[in-house]
Design a protein around this nucleic acid. Structure first.
Lengths: 152, 152
DNA sequence: CCTGAAATGCACTCCAC
DNA sequence: GTGGAGTGCATTTCAGG
């Protein structure tokens, strides 16, 4: 895989902000021909730097206004617990992120639900599938910033 | 804005997983003609349900392997503090999420950096711009799940 | 590495049904 | 809602510097 230079970074910055821009405009914006631009994009895709193109949806219009972070502190887990936990959370679409953490909290879950009742249903379903101890939830009152864009 | 029916949801599910699929294939997959499919997508865009199309990048290939959650517990902040905090965090690209929370922690920051040294630089820059008290960081050891896809 | 042009294919529109 | 057909532009390939 080739090293990523400055021009690549500018291309990536544009694409992760908006991938619908025509090649022509993208090229002129970064001072490259449409064609050279295209070749770099293909190379970045082949190298796995660009993972995929997706549509970003608006949570507010889909009745998913409540974001919640669930913190888990574990007791001693039996062998195979992590495997079961991983399968359970991966099978639950409301759960968008699951992270094993340093520090005093062991696992952190990021989820989106319509409202408090929706959180309760999620919680009930989760503890029914995996034994959990010491669960606490924090709800997002205000999203000051929330982006998928990586710092380049 | 029209209500979103089951077929719309299936379209959205496909698009937020992969927006590069040709209309033809997308149509057959959900059992709709290319044409009807296209009309629904345009309607969803007009209604703001589909926000935009973006490229998703691979953090591992861009030397952004470390994800960190920074927890802030506030002391009494002077007026205008939130405004300053918001501007500062929005101007820092490593910071991908900033949330005002319920519960004992007041603000939660999600950020991506290359490594521990990168985190320290971020931390130093942040406290230089905004007065903060009671800052604690938790680092992601393992990403068990991490997706942008909303539950539909 | 790049540019510019040619060929392909798809998005998009309009049509009749 | 379906399918077909036509236009134009984006994407891709190719020839060449």
């Amino acid at each position: 895989m080739n090293t990523i230079d400055d021009i690549d970074r500018r291309i990536l910055r544009e694409l992760q902000r908006d991938s619908a821009t025509p090649l022509e405009e993208l090229g002129t914006r970064i001072g490259l021909s449409r064609n050279a631009c295209w070749r770099r994009i293909k190379a970045l895709e082949a190298a796995g730097v660009i993972d995929r193109r997706v549509a970003l949806l608006n949570p507010g219009t889909l009745d998913l206004g409540l974001m919640v972070y669930i913190q888990l502190r574990t007791s001693a887990h039996e062998p195979g617990w992590l495997e079961k936990f991983s399968r359970a959370t991966n099978a639950m679409p409301e759960i968008m992120g699951v992270y094993r953490m340093t520090g005093d909290l062991d696992y952190l879950i990021r989820a989106r639900v319509p409202d408090m009742a929706g959180y309760d249903r999620l919680y009930q379903r989760l503890i029914a599938r995996v034994p959990l101890s010491d669960v606490s939830a924090s709800f997002v009152m205000e999203e000051i910033k929330d982006t998928h864009e990586l710092p380049l």
